[in-house]
């Protein structure tokens, strides 16, 4: 799941793969703003076949938080 999430970040934000780290947070870089956050959410929903709630969407403000949340939804980190 980690590799898939990394691919989403690289595609949606135009990041270099090595910039994808657990500590990366929303709004800490210009590329991750409110508009691109929505693009990330939609890509996650599609990739993992999920329907995220608005509380989830607002809470997914770092790579670590996204990984943790996906884990609670039964998607194994790997």
């Amino acid at each position: 799941m980690r590799a898939a999430l990394q691919e989403i970040f690289v595609t949606e934000l135009g990041l270099n793969p090595e910039d994808f780290v657990d500590e990366l947070t929303y709004n800490s870089i210009p590329e991750w703003d409110s508009a691109s956050h929505m693009a990330i959410i939609l890509a996650i929903e599609e990739k993992f076949d999920l329907a995220l709630e608005s509380d989830d969407i607002v809470a997914m403000t770092s790579v670590r938080k996204i990984l943790n949340l996906l884990e609670t939804k039964g998607i194994p980190v790997g």
Binding site: Y26, N27, S34, H37, M38, S54, I57, V58, T61
Partner: peptide, 10 residues
């Protein structure tokens, strides 16, 4: 706020 801006309708 920054995080609230993720869900303007909410």
């Amino acid at each position: 706020g920054n995080e609230e801006a993720l869900d303007p309708v909410g």
